[in-house]
Design a protein around this nucleic acid. Structure first.
Length: 419
RNA sequence: GUGGCCUUAGCUCAAUCGGCAGAGCAUCGGAUUGUGGCUCCGAAGGUUACGGGUUCAAGCCCCGUAGGCCACCCCA
C-alpha cells in the first residue's frame, strides 16, 4: 500500500455522524440572522498581512504569533507571503466596507457570515488551527442599544442551540478620549510592582498595558488593586456603559461585569464581552466574544464610522452541546427501494417519482439476496422498504414494526409514509 | 511558543521478565433454495504512528520526528 497522508495539524474531518450537530447549530444561526434582520456577506479566506497588522494591532497575539501565512507560487512576487489566512472576520469586513463605499448605504449596516477562521496556534481540545465562527457586525450605529441587541442575540443563540447557563461577561475599556489616561494609570501602577510581573506582562506593559490585566499569572492582590477601567471612563463612555447595563437589565440578559476582560485585539473600544458556560470545566471556555470598534474603520483609511460585532465559536458551541448530552432530532423518514430481480431501471424510476414528491429515497443498486438488501436498508436508517417483486408488484415493509403490506400503489406508499 | 502524558486492526482495548501480535464491537460472507433484527460458523482487516539505535530476539529498552491530549500562553 502507498504511504498514507493525514489531515494537517490542528484540522479535522467532520464525519457524517458528526455533522448533525453542525447542521443544527448553523440552522439556529441562520434563522436568528433572518429574525434579527442581518444581511449575509462573504469575504476572502485570506487578506494582506498588513490589514490584520493594522486592524488587530501588532502586539495582539493573533498577529504577533498566530498569523497563518500564505505564500504565493514559487518565483512569484508574492512568494514572500504578504498574505495570511483570516484569524477573524472583522478586519476583512471593515476593509470591504471601505473598499465598496458602503457608507453610502442606508445605515446602520447589519451583516452576518459563517465561515472558517485560521490561527497558527498549538492545538488542543476546543482549539484548532481551523475553526468556524458565526459572525455578526453592525456598522454605523454608536449607541448602546445596538450593543445590548447584539449581546442579547448571542445569548439567545446559545439558548436556542440548546445550551443552558451561558453567561455574558461585559466590560468597557473606554475610547480615545479616556483610554490614554487609563493606560497611564495602569502603567504607573504596574511599574511600581514591575518585579512581580511575568515576562510577557513586563514586555507588554508599555506596548499594551490593558493586556497585563488579562495575564492569568498576575497575583490576585495585584489584579484586585489595579485601576479599574470603569473608574477611568470619560463621561460619554460612562454614559454608554450605564446605558448598556440598563438595557441588558430590562431585556433580562444574564451578564456579569468583569473588570479584567479586555479582549485580545487592539481595535476594541468601549464595550467588550465574552460568553461562557457557567461553571464549566476545562480551559477553552470562551464560547464567543465581541466588542465595539469605533476607531477601526478610520484606522483602515475609511471615514470615521462606529461598529460593533461578535464572533461565536461553533466548534466550542458543539463541544459544549455534546458535553451537555445533546442528541440530534430524528431525521425524515427514509425509504429504501429494493427488489428481488435485477430491474434497476424500475427501482430508479420509482425512486425518482417518490423524490419528486419530497420523499427521501435510497435505492439499492445491488443484486444481493433480498434479506441482505433489507438488512442493509435497516442499518442505513431507512424506516420503510419498498420491495419490487419479480412479478412487478410493490410491497411496503415497515422496518421498525416488521409489518408488510402487499400489492400497494405509489399513491398508497406516499400516504403511508407521510401519514 | 514552553512543559508534561500518550500513540497496537475502522473503533474500544489486551499481549507476564524483551521470546509466535490477540479479543470484543463494526464490516463482508455462509447457515437461510430471495423477506432484516436473534443465534451459530467463517473471512477479511497490522511495516504495533514514522525513522534510527541496543539485542540472538523489540509492541515492550534508548534517541529523533509526527500527531493527539493536558497544563501554560491566549482565545473561539
Amino acid at each position: 500500500m502507498a504511504k498514507t497522508i493525514s489531515a494537517p495539524r490542528g484540522t479535522r474531518d467532520l464525519l457524517p455522524e458528526e455533522t448533525a450537530a453542525w447542521s443544527h447549530v448553523e440552522a439556529v444561526a441562520r434563522d436568528l440572522s433572518r429574525r434579527y434582520a442581518l444581511e449575509r456577506i462573504e469575504i476572502p479566506l485570506f487578506e494582506r498581512v498588513e490589514l490584520f497588522a493594522r486592524g488587530l494591532g501588532e502586539s495582539s497575539d493573533a498577529v504577533e504569533k498566530e498569523m497563518f501565512r500564505v505564500a504565493g507560487a514559487k518565483g512569484s512576487e508574492e512568494e514572500a507571503a504578504p498574505w495570511a489566512l483570516r484569524p477573524e472576520p472583522t478586519a476583512g469586513i471593515a476593509r470591504a466596507f471601505i473598499e465598496h463605499g458602503m457608507h453610502v448605504r442606508p445605515g446602520p449596516l447589519r451583516l452576518t457570515m459563517i465561515g472558517p477562521m485560521f490561527r497558527y496556534d498549538r492545538p488542543q481540545a476546543g482549539r484548532y488551527r481551523q475553526f468556524v465562527q458565526w459572525d455578526v457586525e453592525v456598522i454605523g450605529d454608536a449607541g448602546p442599544a445596538v450593543d445590548a441587541e447584539l449581546i442579547e442575540l448571542g445569548h439567545r443563540f446559545y439558548a436556542e442551540a440548546g445550551l443552558r447557563d451561558v453567561v455574558a461577561r461585559i466590560n468597557s475599556i473606554g475610547d480615545s478620549t479616556c483610554r490614554p489616561a487609563y493606560r497611564d494609570a495602569l502603567i504607573a501602577y504596574f511599574s511600581e510592582h514591575a518585579g512581580r510581573l511575568g515576562p510577557d506582562s513586563a514586555r507588554r506593559l508599555h506596548v499594551n498595558p490593558l493586556r497585563v490585566l488579562d495575564d492569568k499569572t498576575l497575583p490576585d492582590d495585584l489584579a484586585a488593586g489595579a485601576p479599574r477601567g470603569i473608574d477611568h471612563l470619560c463621561d460619554a463612555c460612562r454614559e454608554h456603559f450605564d446605558g448598556l447595563r440598563g438595557l441588558l437589565d430590562a431585556l433580562g440578559v444574564r451578564y456579569e461585569v468583569d473588570h479584567r476582560l479586555v479582549r485580545g485585539l487592539d481595535y476594541y473600544t468601549r464595550t467588550a464581552f465574552e460568553y461562557y458556560v457557567a461553571g464549566r470545566e476545562g480551559q477553552q471556555q470562551a464560547l464567543g466574544g465581541g466588542g465595539r470598534y469605533d476607531g477601526l474603520i478610520e484606522l483602515l483609511g475609511g471615514r470615521p464610522t462606529p461598529g460593533i460585532g461578535f464572533g461565536l465559536g461553533l466548534d466550542r458551541t458543539i463541544l459544549a452541546l455534546e458535553e451537555a448530552g445533546w442528541t440530534p432530532p430524528a431525521g425524515q423518514a427514509l425509504v429504501a427501494v429494493l427488489g428481488a430481480g435485477d430491474d434497476h431501471g424500475r427501482r430508479l424510476a420509482i425512486a425518482a417519482e417518490l423524490r419528486a414528491t419530497g420523499i427521501a429515497v435510497r435505492p439499492d443498486g445491488s443484486t444481493r439476496k433480498l434479506g441482505k438488501q433489507i438488512e442493509s436498508a435497516a442499518k442505513a436508517g431507512a424506516a420503510w422498504a419498498l420491495i419490487v417483486g419479480e412479478d412487478g408488484a410493490l410491497a411496503l415493509r415497515d422496518l421498525e414494526r416488521g409489518e408488510q403490506r402487499d400489492s400497494v400503489t405509489l399513491g398508497e406508499v406516499r400516504a403511508a409514509i407521510s401519514g
